[in-house]
Design a protein around this nucleic acid. Sequence first.
DNA 1: CTATTTTTGACCAAATAAGTACAAGTAAAT
DNA 2: ATTTACTTGTACTTATTTGGTCAAAAATAG
Lengths: 97, 97
Amino acid sequence: MLGVKLKELRETNGMVQRQIAALLEVDTAFISKVEKEEKQISKNHISRLAKLFKVSESELNSFWVADKILALIEDEKKENIERILEIVSVSKKIKIK
Amino acid sequence: MLGVKLKELRETNGMVQRQIAALLEVDTAFISKVEKEEKQISKNHISRLAKLFKVSESELNSFWVADKILALIEDEKKENIERILEIVSVSKKIKIK
DNA sequence: CTATTTTTGACCAAATAAGTACAAGTAAAT
DNA sequence: ATTTACTTGTACTTATTTGGTCAAAAATAG
């Protein structure tokens, strides 16, 4: 989710992975894996990326957390996921669209 | 969530922590912390607990995963949690009650 | 062709999470 | 009142995960 989004943002801004890597002070190989959703960036990179691409930091952050959740539930059956999200939303008193 | 549930199950079955600890082959102190939600049991203990208490394994498992998710989102603002769960449910094509 | 960008796989270090050790506390039973 | 069974707090160890590197291979562009 976030990886693909970051790749889109990078490309619409006409940048190459090396430039993103330089900004975050990480290896380009790592950026490649992030964009292919093989690895996740650490949370503290998000604000820099949001500033770079001029997008909402909390929106990027929401995708970051969503990715973590998706990793947690990836082996669960659909019916169980429904139940899990119900437990979470009830516990947090939240209604989901 | 799960810790409290396990404590209730243990008590309605008239058992003490030491017995649960013996079943899972862990320290009794650890069980105490699990019930106080200070630690989480590892996922592979769940089937043994489900059998012991004769409850649905997938229901216990759902609470286990929900606990993980709750830990992930505990610092997020309510509005962001709504957004995050929306992203997850859309991505998994799920409708939440 | 060759130079640059992206991808891959094996590996590593630091952080986090699961679990332990043990002392000390509580409550009940004898 | 003291033994016994059970629970909790703090601090420690161990296992697992995760964020990241390095070198080399594969695409892509010029």
